[in-house]
Amino acid sequence: MATEEHGSGLQIHPMDQFVVKPLFGDGPVEWYTPTNVTLWMGIAILAVVALLVLSTRRRAIVPSRGQSVAELFYGFIHKMVEDVTGHEGLKYFPYVMTLFMFVFLSNMLGLIPMSFTTTSHIAVTAVLALLVFLTVTLVGFYRKGIGFLAMFWVSSAPLALRPVLALIELISYFVRPVSHSIRLGGNLMAGHAVIKVFAGFAGVMGVASIVPIAGIAAIYGLEILVAAVQAYVFTILTCVYLRDAVGDAHH
């Protein structure tokens, strides 16, 4: 780290919060090592169970608060899948719901001070995006066969332009997982790093640190919005991509 190497002024380490480290001991991080990633993903699972299973265990016709929230999430994603992907897409509703709940809860859990944000890691978001990409591609070829490729052949454009458009469409198709993953990871990482930088200012400014602390409060509010919006965007883009594979490619 640059500031460390030169021993100058501010000791701000905005990236420290993203370090993956083993939960027990100091050993190397093997693929099976329980790390803070494991811990916070486990907490995310517990949150999903608490939110969607425990709160609905009474199956009340008149819902309690927790059950209302669970039904709200269910209805929200169900409607999104149905509206964007079409009726056929409801088969993939549990899959989309899984992605949404994981991303949403990881984003929110990451906002707890001293926590670890799993979705700020490119490794995690890249896997999520690649899963979507592979699902869309495989489902598209499975359902439409070679006709899936018609997606790249824009039949409404003039004939001369079509090869160029096909190339652009093809490139944009393969860039999808990149932008899909970097958007989520980058947003989360940026927000957390900015908060950390402000916190570093607060550490050295004495009484005037009230200003960066107020700034942190404001950015924290913004980050809550970002966490929800990015989960929403990730999910709705998943639905949009699924529509290519499931619904009518052109509408």
């Binding site: 640059a2 999104m80 964007v84 958007r183 980058g186 790093a193 919006v229 965007v233």
Partner: peptide
């Protein structure tokens, strides 16, 4: 509103790319 958010997401992604470049250069 769904279209709005998708549009915002696409516009924002490119900005995030340049932020990523900055982070890569820094760290």
């Amino acid at each position: 509103t769904a279209t709005l958010f998708v549009g915002i997401a696409f516009a924002e992604a490119l900005g995030i790319f340049s932020f990523l470049i900055a982070l890569l250069l820094m760290f």
